[in-house]
Nucleic acid binder design. Structure first.
Lengths: 150, 150
DNA sequence: GGTAATTGGTTTTATAATGAAACTCATATC
DNA sequence: GATATGAGTTTCATTATAAAACCAATTACC
């Protein structure tokens, strides 16, 4: 492949995000982490990923501060992986992906899972809104350069 | 690589979504499409992607109904690529990725771009809410199986 | 307390995906 | 009508991924 292109310096925030979690496995690992998995073998069994690839992905997720590795027992060498605050901040990405999948990637009668409010069991909504609360779509928005963030 | 693992049959909607757009380039192409790009060479120049890879990615995005290829001129062989309704439905995914990137992947004073409301120039918000409008986070939600979608 | 099994990886090897460059053919441009 | 550009395809070298074997450290079992 002649060294995958890095988007690290790209000024577009989406590009940088994809540089961190835009590969085949990282978001699947993050999804499982949201589901409460912490151990190497849990991820490995759930995803069917090759062990070396999993080890490599966990390493880079930790490097990027998405996961934190901590010894499972005091002084032990065995690790467990937890979402950091930054990692939990990927929640909207996961929800958006999930909703897209739910809407478009299932046959009409095909059984599917759904993300619901723990309190009342009702599906959750993801909305993109202007400051005044008005819902906005792709055509209502523009990307502007902010040279000096406040 | 011994055939990348396909997530097509996975019952998790996020997994299926990642199967469609979870590779290194597809979402970058979609981002450019949201920015109004339609032509092969525009994508190629913007992304610096190899031509054969771009051709391949455009093909699969069209196959998945994210982009539609239409002749640029009546009867001509040259194509242009537009987001379909399904493709535009990836808007929340793009916004979520962008917001994650904005929050975590820029140095404090580093210039960045921002997605704003075309009407008033104010940044847009992405929220995940329960039916009653209460904002919910990862811990407030659960995934449930829905055997028989309505 | 000694042995077996499990966990959490690393190393090795084969193959597929990627990238770069050269090539092709149709379409604009002058 | 010649030249340049657009939109790919083909070929080839290289890298990333997967599978399997291997290994050290824990943990479980008796």
């Amino acid at each position: 492949m002649v060294a995958r292109k890095s988007l690290k310096g790209d000024p577009c925030p989406s590009a940088r995000a994809l540089d961190v979690i835009g590969d085949w496995w990282s978001l699947m690992i993050v999804r499982d982490a949201f589901d409460g998995m912490t151990r190497f073998s849990e991820f490995q069994k759930s995803l069917g990923i090759a062990r070396n690839i999993l080890a490599e992905r966990l390493r880079t997720l930790v490097e990027h501060g998405i996961l934190a590795a901590e010894p499972v027992a005091e002084g032990g060498a065995r690790l467990q992986y937890r979402l950091t605050a930054r990692g939990r901040d990927l929640f909207p990405v996961m929800v958006a992906l999930r909703q897209f999948g739910e809407r478009h990637l299932f046959a009409p009668q095909e059984p599917r899972s759904r993300l619901v409010d723990r309190a009342d069991g009702q599906p959750v909504r993801l909305d993109i809104r202007a400051q005044d609360g008005r819902p906005v779509g792709p055509d209502d928005t523009v990307v502007v350069k902010v040279p000096e963030p406040e």
